[in-house]
Structures are given as structure tokens and as C-alpha cells.
Design a protein around this nucleic acid. Structure first.
Lengths: 221, 221
DNA sequence: CAATGCCTTACAGCTTTCTGTAAGGCATTC
DNA sequence: GAATGCCTTACAGAAAGCTGTAAGGCATTG
């Protein structure tokens, strides 16, 4: 099992939960917690130079801004920086972000080894992820759907297009005209009405204001 | 000190971190964790009916959606429901939300006793909050600026309040009525219209959809 | 105390949103 | 090929959004 683990996570309660689980369930005794990306980076660098490197990083993606220490502001930046020091160190991301595109990029570009989506089972998933990654496999929280990477969005893509335009202040009439110009069908104002109304039900929104707000907060727009 | 504490929080790692801290630092031995609002509600209700009620609730505000159990979808809804059972139970909110308006509403309308903003020191703050609330005082994370508690809102806060309600699907008529009920002035539909129109100019938005989208992306809503 | 400017409010009108009904196109099923 | 279901579209009416005008309140200024 991993000997030295570095945790970068800015929520104190979350960090403590992870450390507790790692110690009790995986019997890992060297765990370093860091609340800031820069500090995590320094820890990692120093350990590497001393010839006693960390062999696993568990990091969040989003970090609150702070007045000091702001060279590295996100988990992604941290990973990129660490990859300059050690190309092969294992990395597991533990974050509430669920955007498939973003997650896939982390695997393909930052070469991360596991992705755990924070939630009701995330501590158990993290344990599994660590075990999988230790066996040189990758891990992704099962509830995430990373299938829709290439190509087939179809339905959703159409809806998203409309919603994006609405969020940018276009009226439905304007959107209808826009679609006609681009030879995209369906394109009637009426159909747009129906589509959006259907989304009200799906997302429990009262009206378009509400729907747009919800979708942006969900990171879908 | 509190004897029975109920924790409602859907991130498993966070929950474990809190439980660990409460047990080790406050020597509280009866702690119930729930990952769903509805389950927390049921726990609370049953305990109350049996004459062995919880005396503190620690809850998050945002909960991930789930397929089952969706009567209560947020911490706020949970608190409102619990207040029907027990008007006086102490409540501490532990959330990453930092919007002063929203937080003030929780104090004034839901009568919460403490608010801890998740972050690099939130576990320590939570411990302090519990001690303060146990002494019948309130607690708010010091980094939060909740100056504008009673009566007189500043320009910005007033505008933000309106925008936030719009983003939640309220119509301007409804918002006007809401303001009148709370004795906040100005409160006419007309004034709300003017205020929002002015914000269109300030933020270069074409209409309300656009404005809401921009403000959320800017992190102001 | 008259003049000025700013804010609040009411109202009018015009546009957009939202919802329901109805008709036609198209594919599937029996 | 008749029946069925789903999607697209048109249209209509009610509600809400948006914009401009006008009137009154209130404080400031000269």
C-alpha cells in the first residue's frame, strides 16, 4: 500500500474525515494535510528533493481564495505543477465537480489516476479508488457518466443550445430565427416553448429565470 | 453540553470529519449522522415523539439530488420542517454558502442559532459555535460580514435580494408582496422594475435572464 | 420659500413568456 | 391500412416583463 500520502483540501472538516478513514481503514500512517495548493506544492517538492517522495496525492479542485499564497489557485494547477517534478506520482482527485468534460480532461491531459465525486458514499469510494490506483488501475465514481465524451449529445445539446442563448438574453423569437438561419430543425417558437417548459418539470423550475439559475449553478451552462 | 446531536450532511467525508471532532474534542457520545434531509427529519421526529429528543441539529444547506427521498431537498427546508416539531431546538448551519442575505434570512426567519462557513478553519469554528450556542448565544463565522441585520439594507444588498428571488423563480409581483410583508421599503412593483432595469445598464445585460446568468457566473448570486 | 434633484409609486402600452388546444407529419404496430 | 403515439407547428389568451410618462414626497440649496 502507499506509504506517504499528501492531501490538498481546503475544508478542514473534509480533510479530517479523509485522514481518519485512511488511518483506520487503510492503516496508512504517514499522511500530510495541506489547506493551500502552494503549501502542498512545497511539501511535495521538498520531499522529492530529499529523496523521500510522496507516492500519492489526493486533491480537491476548488480552493477558496486567500490573501496569501496564490500562485496555485486550484487543484488542476497544483497537479500540473507537480507533474513537472514527478511525472509518475499517482493522483486522485476528490471534488464536487461533476462535469464530464472537465473530468475527462484531467484524465487525458493531467494523467490523473482516479476521480471521486464528493457525495454520500465518497469516503468509501475514495478507499476503493486508493486500492485500485495502487494496483495501477484507474477509478471513477460509478455514478458519473463519462460516456458522453465524444459525439452523441443529441437531445441535450439542442436543449443546451437554447438555454445558453436564453441565458445570453436572446428572446425565443430571436432564437427561432437564429435556428432557421442555421438550418437547424426544429426551430419554431412554439417548439422552443415546449422544450423549455419540459425542462421546468425536469429540473423543478418555476420559470426561465429559475431554470437558468439552477443550470448555471449545476455547472451545466 | 449537548447530549444528543443530529448531523445532516450529504458529503460522507465531511460528516466523518465533524463526528470525529465532536467525539474527541467535545466528548459527545450520541451523534447521529444522516445523509438525506428526509431521513434526518424522520430521526428527529421519532426521537421527539419518544420523549428523547435531539437538542442540536448541525446541517448543511445544499444537498445533492437523489432519486428517492425527495420531500425535503435542502437544509433550509429541513429546518422549516423541524421547527414545526420543535420550535426551540438549537440549529447550527455548516455550509459553504457565504451570501449574507441568505444567511441573515436563516437567522431571522428560521431562527437558527449559528452559522459556520466551510473552509480552512471551519472545524474549529464549529466547535466554538457549539459551545456558544450551548450558552444560548449565537455564532457566525468571523470572516462573514453580516452587518446589515435589521431594517436598513444598503443599495447593493437590496438589489441582490431582488435578484436572488428572481433567480429562484419569484415574479416581481410576488417579490413586492414579500417585501411588504417584511416591512422593507421600497417595495412597489414599479420600483423593482426600475432597479432591475438599472442593473441591465450596469452589467450590460439585455434582460433579466441575461442579468441572472451574468451575476451567477460572477459569483454574486 | 421657491427651485432643484432624487426616489418612490401608479399607470399605460407594448413585448415576451407561459400554457393549452388543435392540426398535420411521420414512424411503429397490429 | 387503420390505429397509435410522438414530435412539430400555429394560434390564442392570460400573465409577466419591459419602458416611458407623470405625479407626489422629501431633502438640499440658494
Amino acid at each position: 500500500m502507499f506509504k506517504k500520502i499528501l492531501i490538498a483540501e481546503d475544508f478542514q472538516d473534509t480533510t479530517k474525515g479523509i485522514v481518519e478513514a485512511l488511518k483506520s481503514r487503510l492503516k496508512i500512517d504517514f499522511i500530510q494535510e495541506e489547506l493551500y495548493c502552494d503549501k502542498a506544492y512545497n511539501r511535495f517538492k521538498v520531499a522529492h528533493e530529499k529523496g523521500d517522495p510522496y507516492d500519492l496525492l489526493i486533491t480537491d479542485l476548488s480552493f477558496k481564495e486567500s490573501h496569501i499564497n496564490r500562485r496555485l489557485g486550484s487543484g488542476k494547477e497544483l497537479i500540473i505543477a507537480l507533474r513537472d517534478i514527478d511525472k509518475n506520482v499517482k493522483v486522485i482527485v476528490n471534488s464536487m465537480i461533476e462535469n464530464p468534460i472537465e473530468i475527462n480532461q484531467l484524465f487525458s491531459e493531467q494523467k490523473i489516476n482516479g476521480y471521486v465525486s464528493k457525495g454520500r458514499n465518497s469516503l468509501n469510494e475514495l478507499i476503493t479508488a486508493i486500492q485500485e490506483v495502487h494496483q495501477n488501475r484507474t477509478f471513477v465514481s460509478p455514478q458519473l457518466n463519462l460516456n458522453t465524451v465524444d459525439g452523441v449529445f443529441e437531445m441535450d445539446k439542442y436543449d443546451l443550445m437554447i438555454l445558453k442563448d436564453l441565458a445570453e438574453g436572446y428572446t425565443k423569437k430571436e432564437i427561432s430565427e437564429k435556428l432557421k438561419k442555421q438550418n437547424i430543425s426544429p426551430n419554431s417558437e412554439s417548439t422552443i416553448d415546449k422544450k423549455v417548459s419540459k425542462l421546468f418539470d425536469e429540473f423543478g423550475a418555476k420559470n426561465t429565470h429559475h431554470l437558468i439559475a439552477k443550470l448555471i449553478k449545476l455547472g451545466k451552462l
